[in-house]
Design a protein around this nucleic acid. Structure first.
Lengths: 265, 265
DNA sequence: CGTCAGTTTGACCTAGTTCAAGGCCAGTGG
DNA sequence: CCACTGGCCTTGAACTAGGTCAAACTGACG
């Protein structure tokens, strides 16, 4: 328990950076993964005036009870949302890759009901709510796209609930690895069918996401390796037997509601 | 495991009923609980042409992989969403009271990623997607209200994840009872400060929502009674010590994002 | 070459599960 | 009016998945 040497000053460690970087296309790519976007709309998205900043790992961006006036897009790295519990435990609620908008909800829910911060070093692009609202007025279809994104997010929450509520540690971990692989493919962080994907999480992060103890995460990873399903190190996931992993985790990517269902070999 | 004598024919046991019943005001009441609605908008909501039907308990309305062409509102009774797992277990993902729109997501997510059915006998009001879309074109602010509802739902999922991932059975149950009380108050099923509220769930339902075994749910309920926090029977929840219950469950209603924070004595 | 974050392993322990058997009560049919 | 049934609740006893505690190991970095 009680890890978290998370930096306590939200914006500490952040460096402002010139806007309109290529990584900015992340948002358009993400929305295209779940929604049909016109060329015109893509251009509009790509010229959104983000305020870009870089963050160190494990840095909080927003806290429970905050009332943010802006939303942000992950342009690089991995962020997460989490809650801190009475008993000192931390539950990671979601992880966010390039193109995700982790705090979109602040657009309609005034006060934060959870915390939100980086897991790895990350680059984030910020947009004031006022800008977003004006943008959605001009592009109503993109409002639908974002609403759909909120719904997909809900779907992912539900699948995680299933894992936490009913799956064994082994299945939960297998499922989590499958999701990590597929989502990084969808975010074009690795190419489809790549079996060697970056591993952005520490074992402690995974423990907090999966509702397991750190020790048991370690043992579960070993079990996965022993059975030849996957080899997980600090830096990468190497899938040894995709079919076996998918079966072990009872993984069906339907809940991600991706438009393109890549044929995962 | 392996309970569920859920009726297998979705519409079996359903009786069509004349529309425009008073219970139809449930939707407006619900939306007002989370959003600021004008008089004009309320009138519009209340004259929505629902197709009303009654259902027996434990009846499925929609199934995983279905592609619904309509959404429904709970007008009376309690519904839930759930997933069935490989190993025969069932995870209840959410419960829905009067005024809730449990399958709103079908408006933007073509295929169901979970099942949805009644828990108690229930009356539901149906509206085709086409009608809803036209309605939202005429009342764009209500689109925001529904989007907000989707976000509140996400917030509730997150809180449930915290329970499943980090809380003891005792705390989980206490939290669940607090939520059940507050939500039934918000839905005006009981008046604020009422400490004796209807209990719409069997112990088996609760086990499936909380990720516990039926036996342990039973024991947890007994523990709650022994400590004087709450007495739970098939028909009602009688809160003995609201403050104690809230503390035991680490319950903070902020995640429900209700506009009116009733002073829960 | 010391430090620190993260990983690994062993030994022991407990919260919650599983199995099994009754008990209660409302509804049904004789 | 009574016996019977089926759904739900209750309790005990034995078991196990996963947690906790404690210590050591590894590798990156200054």
């Amino acid at each position: 328990m009680a890890e978290s040497k998370r930096s306590s000053r939200p914006l500490t460690g952040a460096r402002a950076v010139t806007s309109n970087h290529t990584s900015q296309h992340a948002l358009a790519r993400k929305l295209e993964a779940i929604f049909d976007i016109t060329v015109h709309e893509r251009i509009a998205i790509n010229s959104l005036p983000f305020h870009v900043r870089d963050y160190a790992p494990n840095t909080d961006i927003a806290r429970e009870r905050d009332r943010p006036s802006q939303c942000c897009v992950v342009l690089r790295g991995v962020a997460c949302r989490y809650k801190l519990i009475d008993n000192g435990r931390r539950q990671i609620l979601s992880v966010h890759y390039e193109g995700d908008i982790p705090d979109l909800q602040s657009l309609h829910l005034e006060v934060m009901d959870h915390n939100f911060g980086t897991l790895t070093a990350a680059r984030l692009g910020f947009l004031p709510h006022t800008t977003i609202r004006a943008f959605l007025r001009d592009h109503p279809r993109l409002g639908e796209a974002l609403w759909r994104d909120t719904m997909v997010e809900g779907s992912i929450f539900r699948e995680w609930m299933v894992g936490l509520g009913t799956r064994s540690a082994f299945a939960r971990m297998a499922h989590f690895l499958c999701e990590t692989v597929v989502r990084q493919r969808a975010a074009a962080i690795v190419d489809a069918n790549g079996k060697n994907v970056p591993m952005p999480f520490t074992q402690s992060d995974m423990a907090q996401a999966l509702g397991l103890s750190l020790v048991h995460v370690n043992r579960t990873i070993r079990a996965l390796r022993t059975r030849g399903l996957a080899t997980v190190t600090r830096s990468s996931i190497v899938v040894g037997d995709w079919d076996g992993l998918r079966t072990a985790g009872d993984f069906d990517p339907a809940y991600l509601h991706l438009r393109i269902h890549e044929a995962v070999d």
